[in-house]
Design a protein around this nucleic acid. Sequence first.
DNA 1: AATGAATGAGGCTTCATTCAT
DNA 2: CATGAATGAAGCCTCATTCAT
Lengths: 208, 208, 208, 208
Amino acid sequence: MSANPLDSPPDRRTQILRASMICFAKRGFHQASMHDISAEAGISVGLIYRYFENKDAVISAMADEHKREIHDVLERARLAPTLLEAFEIIFTWDCSENSPQIVSAFVVDLFAEAGRNPRVADLVRDVARTAMEGVTDLIARSPEATNLPYDLQPCEITEMIFAVNDGILMRDVLTPNRTSAERRERQTQFARNLWRLLFSAKPEPALA
Amino acid sequence: MSANPLDSPPDRRTQILRASMICFAKRGFHQASMHDISAEAGISVGLIYRYFENKDAVISAMADEHKREIHDVLERARLAPTLLEAFEIIFTWDCSENSPQIVSAFVVDLFAEAGRNPRVADLVRDVARTAMEGVTDLIARSPEATNLPYDLQPCEITEMIFAVNDGILMRDVLTPNRTSAERRERQTQFARNLWRLLFSAKPEPALA
Amino acid sequence: MSANPLDSPPDRRTQILRASMICFAKRGFHQASMHDISAEAGISVGLIYRYFENKDAVISAMADEHKREIHDVLERARLAPTLLEAFEIIFTWDCSENSPQIVSAFVVDLFAEAGRNPRVADLVRDVARTAMEGVTDLIARSPEATNLPYDLQPCEITEMIFAVNDGILMRDVLTPNRTSAERRERQTQFARNLWRLLFSAKPEPALA
Amino acid sequence: MSANPLDSPPDRRTQILRASMICFAKRGFHQASMHDISAEAGISVGLIYRYFENKDAVISAMADEHKREIHDVLERARLAPTLLEAFEIIFTWDCSENSPQIVSAFVVDLFAEAGRNPRVADLVRDVARTAMEGVTDLIARSPEATNLPYDLQPCEITEMIFAVNDGILMRDVLTPNRTSAERRERQTQFARNLWRLLFSAKPEPALA
DNA sequence: AATGAATGAGGCTTCATTCAT
DNA sequence: CATGAATGAAGCCTCATTCAT
């Protein structure tokens, strides 16, 4: 087809996973057919099976991708100069893509699938655990958290953060028309509000 | 089977919806077959079609049930003597059933479905809007919220509450073995922590 | 379709197995598609799965039918007045059907399948063992066999009989155009020849 | 892979056919995939198509091989000093290979295939006819058969021989664990027994 | 009101075959 | 000569839905 070495073996796996993400977000794991995926990827159905053993393997690979992405986000959050900025990175992790609603739809489906498919459940649990450990550590090492408000345990704070974060994501499937920028703006606001509630003794004068 | 007029048509609709809830939680909307539901309900497949036009109608009816349940919860929350107690009612609304993991699995799937099925999306959005209005009103009328912390808007507070609430629920699918009591305990704690963050200038001396 | 109680529930299982026999003989177990079978039976594909778990189960059921048929043949042979007549019954067991080539094609495929499918192999082995025990017993109790020729063991005689019988059947797939009567005639001749070789000290004056 | 001219094209056809024999015996003609064959032969799928037009051509070529082998066996039988030895050669033709069960599984499948594939049927029929002519001739020219027992025609004797021979082979698929030596021993015994029944007026004193 | 046999479209997967390299 | 990525038709099986009883 093309002799361009840049796309010659266009990394089929990635190509298929990208198409799968779109289809899964649009129709759900089990409503998306292998034909949907192949059409979205612009390849034949059979070719998918050269790269994935079966449909479940595609789902698992997507979960793996998700895991990797969350790890990247955590890494970036760790490098942030302030805890507030780390919060902002974490709360907007799904807004870098062109179509953020794809990410939220996918993740909600991923959790739904985790409720039934043990292989997926293990993966998602693993992601959740690692992410929480990372954030707990982040907080523990940050100056803002030297004297935590009230008697909240660090892990309680982390749980609160992730609950808010996942709750936003879950509700996002209800407003699919928000642009990436709007979403980012909104989620940044959540990050700041939560940060203030948690670490700020007094209201900030002028942040937003 | 039975000619006993007391249980003869024991509200078939409810019977079917109850069975559907179990099947949907166990396998997901689209993985649960009509046969699964009929078997769980102990009736024949054909009978379901006498009460519901098709499978989608069952899903919509379940969403309706959910709407009604959330309305009940809000009503109970409205009657609570204090805002903290209202919080506790809201945060533990899914813990009254015998098998709370059924509720969380169902709701996560409901949101996932809302991302694709406009009919379901409208319903869930409507539930969400009504619930948020109710809670915003609850807060506005409560003495604790006379002077809100920082510069948070009432609707921002409500969004935070629902984000936390939905986030907990979403993550609950990962820990299916928690008992109803454990879940209730945990979610009550979230309610209290969030309440303190939002409305308490100082740490409470002895609440738990 | 029909209110005739004789065919009202036309014993779907039997109907499916009869169609399967035809399809399997015509195309082989694995070349015959479920669609072929359903078309031959005049029903839909899905209906087959109400009576058989999957295609393998159909094959196994056919093997079971075969087992039952062989048992019947043995029973009839046991009741025969003379050993020669028993031989004739055994050697022509596959000639009662309208289309005897169907039986031979099926059985050869059954043995081929037995070479790979352990479940089928067990069944066929079981049939073979039972049949040989029956024939060995038949011979042992027959007057013709009081003094066996040479030093042949009863089981060696039985093995010879079954080898000849199966060999005829195997070669029959090469001459599919023989009528049932021709086949019966031919196989009867084999029975008589083998009987004479085994039990007759001298040539029979006028049998054929 | 290798530039060594000695093994570079190590008679690809033979290599492919040898691999096919193994795969066909193991899984049957139609269950064995071209990929199975290529893997067994240690080459790529595409290469098979350089030597064979399609899968059917491989099957036909295997049938051809079979024909050639049977011709060889007949030739060797013809050169045997006595008819009994000729019998023994014929009855053990499939025992020279390392894995005799491969041969029997293959031949049973070949006959099954002959029942459907006319091209294969013609080939197998041709083999059968030639072989029978050869053996009939062998018997006609042998001193043992000067005065045949009873009133058996030479061709009837030949048919009996081949029936026994094929019957043994067919049943062999049920006992796949016999060694080559055991199989040879057993089939030699059949040869002797049949020989005695056919040509020996009296039991042999001490042959086995 | 209730059953469950029956249908057939559609999903997942395999595999013979081709072809660019 | 040799590879193996790619295709797409076809096979097995499921399941929402209907309908005669």
